[in-house]
Nucleic acid binder design. Structure first.
Lengths: 225, 225
DNA sequence: GCTCATCAAGTCATCAGATGATTTGATGGA
DNA sequence: TCCATCAAATCATCTGATGACTTGATGAGC
C-alpha cells in the first residue's frame, strides 16, 4: 500500500516554487531563474519544471515571456480560497451570499438606472410560478431576477461572487438537501424592487434582509436535524 | 507588431480541452483520451498536452492517475471568478469586503464567545500606533484586529473571502494608490467591539458601517481624481 | 468452482536532447 | 545621436526513450 500523500514530482516542484514566491524571495516584477537553473535548483528535468511553472502561471503567480524570462506577477495565492469556501458548509455560504445580496440592494438603491428597474420588473413578471413548467425552469427564472438586482449595484466584484455562491449553493442543495426551502411570494419580491426604486439604501437593505430571514431560519432547522 | 492576443500552444490546448470538459463532452468520472490521442486531437506534442492537462488538473477539472488514465473531476470551472474579482477595481473590492465585514460583525454579535471578546480587546490594545514601529508592522496588527472580528462570526466562508479581499486590496493599493486612506482611531475600533459585546446585531452592523464610511468616501475621491 | 499470484498491455511520469521563436542589450556605422 | 544589425539569452515546442503504476486476463492450485 502506498502512502496516500504520495505526490508526483511536478506537484512537489510547483509547491516548492510556490512557497518561494509566497515567501517573497523574489519581488513582484522580478525575474526568477531560467528553466535550466530551476532544473538544477529543483533537481527535476526541464519538462517537469515547465509543468510546474505552467501551473503557477495559471494561478496568476508567474508570467512567462518568451525570449525574456519568467517574472513574478503576484506574491499572494488566492487560488485555493474558493475551494475552501465551497467546503465551508451550506449555512455559511448562504449567509455570505445574503451579505452580498443585502449590500447589492443597498448600492442598487443608490445607483440604479431607469433601465435597471425596467429589467427587474420585467424579470419579476416573467418569473411566474413553479406550476408553469417545472422546478428547474422556475429556479432559473428566479435566479435571473435576483441577479438583476445584484447587477444593478454596479459592483462587479459582488456580481462575480454572487454568481459563484449561487452555483455553489445550488450544487450543495442538489447533493445534500432534500427538504424544500420556503419560497417567498411575488409580493415579497416586488417589495425589494420598490424599495430600491425609492433610492433609500437602508430601506432596500432591510427589504432584502427580511426577505432572506425565513429562508435562513428554515435552512438552520434543516441542517440541525 | 504582433497582435496582442497572440497566445501560445499550451494555452490554446488547455482552453480547447477546458471548453470540451465544460460542454459536458465527458461525464464526471469518465476517462478522457490518453496523451497520445490528445496529441493527435489537439495537434500538439505530448509535452504540450501534458502542460495543458496539468493546468486543468490544478484547476480541479481533471484528475490524472498514473497507469490508469486521466479522468474528469468536475465540469464547472470557478477558478476564474476570483481573477475577475481582482480586476474589478478597488472601489468594488472595498465595497464587497465592507459588506462581508458588516455581516461578520452582525453574526459576531450573535455568536461570539467570551474568548472572542478577550482576543479582540487584546489585539486592539496591542495594535498601538503607526509611530511604534513603522507602517507595515502597524498594518499587520490592524489587520489582525479586524480579522479577529470576522473570525468571531463563526462563518468560514466569510473569513475566507475577507482574507482574499484583504490581500487583494493591499496589493492593489501598493501598486496603484499613493495617497493615504484615513485611519479611524482607537475609539472607533473599540466602539465595534463594544457593540458586538452587547449582542445587538443591528448595532454591531451599524458600528462597522459607520466605521467604513469615511474610508470609502476618501477612496472614491482618490479614484475619481 | 473459487482464490490468488503472476503477467502483459495500457497509461501516466520523467528524463534528455534538439531546434525554433522571441526578446534584449550590445555593437558599430551613418 | 540615432538606428539598423547582430548575438546571446530565454522560453516554446517537438521527439524519442525509459520508468512506474494500474488493471484486467490468465492459469495454477485448491
Amino acid at each position: 500500500m502506498q502512502p496516500i500523500n504520495r505526490t508526483n514530482l511536478t506537484e512537489s516542484a510547483a509547491e516548492s516554487l510556490r512557497a518561494e514566491i509566497l515567501s517573497g524571495r523574489w519581488a513582484i516584477g522580478e525575474r526568477i531563474p531560467n528553466e535550466t537553473a530551476l532544473t538544477e535548483l529543483l533537481a527535476v528535468s526541464r519538462g517537469t519544471v515547465r509543468e510546474a511553472v505552467r501551473v503557477l502561471i495559471s494561478k496568476g503567480l508567474l508570467d512567462a515571456r518568451q525570449g525574456s524570462g519568467t517574472y513574478v506577477r503576484s506574491t499572494v495565492d488566492t487560488s485555493g480560497a474558493l475551494d475552501r469556501v465551497k467546503r465551508s458548509g451550506l449555512r455559511d455560504q448562504w449567509e455570505a451570499r445574503a451579505a452580498l445580496d443585502v449590500e447589492a440592494a443597498r448600492l442598487a438603491a443608490l445607483r440604479h438606472t431607469p433601465g435597471d428597474l425596467d429589467r427587474m420588473r420585467g424579470l419579476l413578471k416573467a418569473r411566474g410560478t413553479v406550476a408553469d413548467d417545472g422546478r428547474e425552469a422556475f429556479g432559473r427564472r428566479d435566479i435571473a431576477f435576483h441577479r438583476s438586482i445584484v447587477e444593478a449595484s454596479g459592483n462587479r466584484a459582488i456580481v462575480e461572487l454572487y454568481d459563484f455562491f449561487t452555483s455553489a449553493i445550488l450544487e450543495t442543495i442538489h447533493s445534500t438537501l432534500n427538504g424544500d426551502l420556503p419560497e417567498p411570494d411575488d409580493r415579497a419580491h416586488a417589495a425589494i424592487v420598490d424599495a430600491i426604486a425609492t433610492g433609500d439604501a437602508d430601506k432596500a437593505a432591510a427589504a432584502v434582509r427580511s426577505f432572506m430571514a425565513p429562508v435562513l431560519r428554515e435552512l438552520e432547522r434543516l441542517l440541525s436535524q
